[in-house]
């Protein structure tokens, strides 16, 4: 429980576009610098491929592409956040790591419900909005981030199947 306590309310934040996102620190196993990615054929665009994490081969997802934003070229600041959700170990490619912040529950607002159109794609993954000072962090639900992916992937494969059938 001690570990839980020290990690409670802490979020790893990263920047993507103009927005800052937060991930509960419990999900994050490590952060590594960007490294060579091996592409996997026939995978959705946002699944960039596989990386070799000290002998363990894990898939990586480009967060920008996942949010259907324009991709930007990878730089020295590009990082991979390795998260573990349920049994999956997945790397998230992010533009820039910001910092680890503490956000108490009372400073977290539920994500705005039926919002404007440009928000709807992000809302899928955002579980709440955390206030830190006068900044706002969009808090991600990693399970949704990956689970929705499954559905998306299934759809993707189904499309492919139906194309093949034709």
């Amino acid at each position: 429980m001690g570990e839980f306590d020290t990690q409670k309310g802490k979020y790893v934040t990263f920047q993507s576009g103009n927005e800052f996102y937060g991930l509960k620190i419990q999900y994050v196993s490590e952060i590594i610098v960007y490294q060579e990615i091996t592409e996997i054929p026939e995978s959705p665009e946002y699944v960039k491929g596989l990386i070799n994490l000290r002998g363990k081969i894990i898939p990586v997802v480009d967060v920008r592409l996942r949010f259907r934003q324009e991709p930007i070229p990878y730089t020295d600041r590009t990082c991979i956040i390795v998260i573990q959700v349920n049994d999956y170990v997945v790397g998230l490619i992010v533009e820039k790591i910001a910092e680890v912040v503490e956000i108490q529950d009372e400073n977290i607002l539920p994500s705005p419900s039926i919002g404007k159109n440009d928000n709807s794609t992000k809302n899928k993954f955002v579980s709440g909005i955390g206030k830190v000072g006068d900044e706002v962090k969009l808090l991600l639900d990693p399970e949704r981030l990956l689970r929705d992916e499954d559905v998306a992937l299934m759809e993707h494969l189904n499309e492919e199947d139906s194309l093949e059938e034709e």
Partner: peptide
Amino acid sequence: VKPIPDYIKKVKGLSGCTQLGDGSIAL
């Protein structure tokens, strides 16, 4: 031989992946 992570759905014709001598990954 290493398995392709579960997260990646089965791709036709691929049975696994491996690490080459330089650390890069081959399918």
